[in-house]
């Protein structure tokens, strides 16, 4: 039986922040994977496509699973009930997680009971997952031994992603600060008729005198200039 990695990036979830079709183009590559007939089916709830692929890759390395990505949170409960997965993975930062709580409770006679994994797995694994920022919901009775590789892989990818997110934010901030400093330098150069190095030295001195960061002083200057012009 062929393992399936399906996704709804371009299907039902049409209202997505990204418009084109890279997901579909990548499908043949991931779709070739052979799965065992009883491969665990996993749903990953993730709107960010890059991140979804990272997680899917990580899971593929860990074993043969049927993986389905849900990108659009609307009708999440219905989508999950329809797919009837063994495991649902969701970012702890995703507000839609509370929708899954509802599913975890709805265990009528027709429904497969779903529980948050912490009920069934080793304490260490659960807190590692919470720390890494991933939450998992599993159907009742799933063996912890089958769940462990899934969670290990998810935790590793979520950690990696957390690091990348921090780095990205830092880089962005640094870039923005540099832009502001450049503008402030330009203003000083023009107003005083001095060179770039001198202008920067002035900024740095003002920052040291006021016990502030150069970027803060530059921002104040740019703001003030904007108000005066």
């Amino acid at each position: 039986m062929l393992g399936r990695i399906a996704q709804n990036f371009s299907g039902e979830g049409a209202r997505l922040p990204f418009g084109h079709d890279v997901a579909l183009q990548l499908l043949p590559a991931v779709g070739m994977l052979c799965g065992m007939p009883d491969a665990l089916s996993i749903i990953v709830v993730e709107a960010d496509r890059e991140r979804a692929f990272m997680i899917v890759d990580g899971l593929r390395e860990a074993g043969d699973f049927d993986i389905y990505v849900i990108a659009d949170p609307s009708g999440l409960a219905r989508q999950i009930q329809l797919r009837d997965p063994d495991v649902v993975l969701i970012d702890i930062e995703n507000p839609s997680r509370d929708v899954l709580e509802e599913l975890a409770l709805a265990s009528g006679p027709q429904e497969r009971p779903v529980a948050m994994f912490v009920d069934r797995s080793a304490e260490g694994l659960s807190s590692a997952a919470v720390e890494a920022g991933v939450s998992a919901y599993v159907v009742d009775g799933l063996q912890p031994a089958r769940l462990k590789p899934v969670l290990d892989a998810a935790i590793a990818r979520f950690r990696l992603f957390q690091r990348m997110r921090t780095e990205l934010a830092e880089t962005k901030r640094a870039l923005e600060e540099r832009k502001v400093i450049d503008r402030a330098k330009g203003m000083i150069m023009k107003a005083r008729g001095i060179g770039e190095d001198e202008a920067y030295a002035l900024l740095r001195k003002a920052a040291m005198d006021q016990n502030k960061r150069v970027a803060e002083v530059a921002q104040a200057l740019v703001t003030a200039a904007g108000l005066l012009s």
Binding site: I92, E93, N94, P95, S96, R97, D98, L100, E101, M116, V118, S126, S127, V130, E131, S135
Partner: peptide
């Protein structure tokens, strides 16, 4: 926190 279940787990696991 982004959701009540996340906050509950953060508390339960000592974060």
């Amino acid at each position: 926190a982004a959701s009540w279940s996340a906050l509950r787990d953060m508390l339960a696991f000592g974060q």
